[in-house]
Amino acid sequence: MLLLLPGLALAQVPNPAQTVMRDGVTLTQAQEQRAEAIGDQLRCLVCQNESIEGSSATLAKQLRIIIRQHVAAGDGDKSIMDYMVHRYGIFVLLKPPFSRLTLLLYATPVLALILGFLVAWLTRRSKIPPPPPLDDAEQDRLERLLKS
């Protein structure tokens, strides 16, 4: 049984030359994987929290077709991304680029870390106040205890 497993794994590796059809566009397995990777990085503008690849909206389907047509034509990932950004702006990118607009977004983890350090530092700094000085009766008792 164990001896059969490597053979089984080999059989399941998709053949990169094999063609698949999605949304009416036929691509090779490798091209389809590239198209999916691109679609995963793009926001569906109708639903806004889904990727183009995962959305069932009509516009997302049209954009999937466009991505696949560009992939079939041999266009690079960057030129396909630029095509989308040119039309919809950087909002279409699920991972926005670092810019003045997204500065606060990217700075948030650092801000939280600094705030955490400040809070930790301030709590450590506020020490327990020293006990009030002993009154005369207590002082006498202390001396008696020390002598005995």
Partner: peptide, 12 residues
């Protein structure tokens, strides 16, 4: 077809 809309960046 809605393809001109895509070129305009219309999303709804």
């Amino acid at each position: 077809s809605g393809l001109t809309a895509i070129n305009w960046g219309v999303y709804g």
